[in-house]
Amino acid sequence: MPHLITPTGAQQQAAEATMGLGVPGYAHPLVAPMEWAELTRPGAPLHWTVLNVANGPGARPDPHCLEASGKLRNAGARVLGHLDLAYGARSFGELVSDAHRYLDWYQVDGFYADRAPTEREALPEVRRISATLRALLPDGHLVFGHGTHPYPGYAESADQLVTFSGPWSDYRWSQVAEWTADYPPEKFCHLVHGVPLGHLEEALRIARWQGAATIWFTDRTDKHRTVDPFEALPGYWDEIVSRIGRGVSE
């Protein structure tokens, strides 16, 4: 079994009660029409999905992305614009410009700040970015895509933190940072690829034990980092929707 810091029973129950899916970004709607259509399925436990037109909003409005995101929003789903922080390498002006285009062209409901820094030293600039995004969209949902546990101070600047993004071979033995116990499960998200169907329930239990209410698990792999494993539906899409919808037994 994974070596975990065990949360309280109340935390596990809260994670189960609120568990849903966070879609880190499908391929373009012309390439993955079925994937985008499935997200509008009635009853799908979707917390949010990321719209990534061209590693950002692109140079001009894309009618296919506009249609896909519009259908999601009409179905009550939350659509987040993809912003690449490049671990702190991108300029403040570039990020704000991208955010404006997402709002003007696609009327997004928030932002997914991918490749967010994790170090304490980068926190002031990330706070500046967060405050600006909040000013642009006061009721928007903001996710920091760290991919690992960052310095704890980041938790106060976003609605959610992605504290794990990687393969099942690492996730099944992962540990949770102690400071996460100070926050509810709604604060955290886990993105895991290469999860076999036979281990899906175990993966869901790990997410609950670690206190992550938003997840995206897929059996697809990155093929030695040559493809994005999150661009298509998991092979067990129906199964994971069903299991999250009815909860996961102990």
Results as ranks from 00 to 15, higher is better:
Ile215Gln: 01
Leu137Ser: 05
Pro117Ala: 11
Glu125His: 12
Arg243Tyr: 08
Trp209Ser: 02
Arg246Lys: 15
Ile215Val: 15
Pro124Trp: 11
Gly235Ser: 04
Ala122Arg: 13
Lys187Pro: 07
Asp109Ser: 12
Gly81Pro: 07
Asp238His: 13
Ala10Pro: 00
Thr18Lys: 05
Gln107Asp: 14
Trp168Glu: 06
Leu66Thr: 11
Leu83Trp: 03
Ala54Asn: 13
Glu178Lys: 07
Thr218Ala: 06
Leu204Arg: 07
Ser165Leu: 05
Lys71Glu: 12
Tyr154Gly: 10
Tyr102Ala: 09
Phe144Ile: 01
Tyr87Glu: 12
His149Arg: 06
Ala32Trp: 05
His64Val: 10
Ala15Gln: 04
Ala213Pro: 00
Cys189Lys: 03
Ala158Met: 08
Val162Ile: 10
Pro167Leu: 01
Val248His: 11
Pro124Arg: 10
Asp104Ala: 14
Ser165Cys: 13
Thr49Leu: 15
Lys71Pro: 00
Leu204Cys: 11
Phe92Trp: 13
Leu123Cys: 06
Met1Leu: 00
Trp48Ile: 03
Asp182Ile: 01
Asp219Pro: 06
Trp36Ser: 08
Leu142Glu: 08
Val96Ser: 00
Tyr112Lys: 06
Gly247Ala: 12
Ser91Glu: 15
Ala27Val: 00
Val176Trp: 02
Ala86Trp: 05
Leu191Cys: 12
Glu35Tyr: 07
Ser242Ala: 15
Gly194Gln: 10
His193Ser: 12
Pro138Asn: 06
Trp173Phe: 13
Glu38Lys: 14
Leu39Asn: 09
Glu156Ile: 05
Val108Phe: 10
Thr221Glu: 14
Ala14Asn: 07
Thr148Ser: 12
Thr148Trp: 05
Asp222Gly: 11
Gly110Thr: 08
Arg243His: 10
Val227Tyr: 01
Val162Gln: 02
Leu191Arg: 08
Pro24Val: 04
